[in-house]
């Protein structure tokens, strides 16, 4: 029983990391259709933000709590700059966007290497996250629990913004029918910029969270970007709930396969499951119904 819950938590924990990485993509790719390969590098920027903040603020707890909003800001600003310089020219060429942002990702990795050095750096976790928490059924590491909570908070916050605020209504309007949204007076350009800012900011937050799990290096982002995209594809574009279900589903699946085979075989098995799943539902778990052919 204990082992089962431990396994379950491992899956949920993996899912929450995937979810944090994919949540921003659900906005930029899912809602706007932009394939931003530099998303992983925005995560890396968030992680290095946590490292820099810890250098300035000695208390690990304060620096972590400070890093989360700062990481959001750093990721968001990077995303905003990218949107305003390159991506806005390329909304009608999604595949080319992928390659352009890959180039940006290479440059950002090298910038990180030149500033912080090629070796990984470590961010110290605060003492209240170093132990483990007894949940009654299983002992779980506090840092992983923290990430799970952070992911839930991020999803909750984002859903609230999308569902209840004027900004959220604008975003949904632009996604569902760009021309009509423009006709009723929504500035689609401003909405695009803001959506991209929030999506990239979430990548920064994910980066801060990742510093709790391991050390930070220039290629931190590349390790997560492929999985994050898979989550969004499996979840279906246009809706956050698909991303949430897909992230936890894939996390649990990966943990289960890992339990019965090896980590590398589990990865391949998960890929096969996704391809088979897309046979049944090519549009992902959820999708917005449209009559367009594209």
């Amino acid at each position: 029983m204990e082992a089962l819950f431990g396994q379950l938590f491992a899956g949920l924990s993996l899912g929450s990391v995937l979810l944090l990485a994919a949540l921003g993509l659900a906005l930029t790719f899912g809602q706007m259709g932009v394939i931003n390969m530099a998303h992983g590098e925005f995560m890396m920027a968030g992680a290095y933000t946590a490292y820099v903040v810890q250098g300035a603020v000695s208390d690990a707890g304060v620096s972590l709590l400070l890093s989360i909003p700062l990481g959001f800001l750093v990721g968001g600003v990077l995303g905003l700059v990218l949107e305003m310089t390159l991506i806005r020219r390329m909304y009608h060429r999604p595949l080319d966007t992928l390659l352009v942002t890959w180039g940006v990702a290479l440059i950002l990795q090298q910038v990180a290497r030149d500033i912080f050095g090629a070796p990984n750096v470590d961010v110290k976790a605060p003492s209240w996250l170093s132990g483990s928490v007894d949940l009654g059924v299983a002992q779980v590491p506090a840092s992983r629990l923290f990430i799970l909570v952070l992911a839930v908070v991020a999803v909750g916050g984002l859903s609230l913004v999308l569902a209840r605020t004027a900004l959220g209504r604008r975003v949904r309007g632009v996604v569902q029918n760009r021309d009509l949204a423009e006709t009723v007076g929504i500035s689609t350009r401003a909405t695009d910029k803001l959506t991209f800012f929030i999506g990239s900011g979430l990548a920064g937050v994910a980066g801060v969270a990742l510093t709790l799990l391991g050390s930070t290096g220039p290629t931190l982002g590349t390790n997560y970007i492929v999985d994050a995209f898979l989550v969004v594809v499996a979840g279906g574009i246009g809706q956050i709930k698909g991303t949430v279900i897909a992230a936890f589903g894939l996390g649990l699946l990966q943990a289960t396969f890992e339990y019965s085979t090896t980590a590398s075989l589990a990865k391949v098995a998960v890929f096969v499951v996704i391809v088979v799943f897309l046979q049944i539902r090519p549009q992902g778990i959820f999708s917005i119904r449209t009559r367009s052919l594209a």
Binding site: F29, G33, I35, P94, L95, L98, V226, F229, L230, V233, A263, S264, L265, K267, V268, V270, F271, I274, V275, V276, L278, Q279, P282
Partner: peptide, 27 residues
Amino acid sequence: AAVFRRRVRGAYFAILSQALAAAFAIL
């Protein structure tokens, strides 16, 4: 055959082919 027959295309195909590369290297 799996992907194109189900009309998965564009970015989705690109991401799947990339995931295949990642899975292959890890394997």
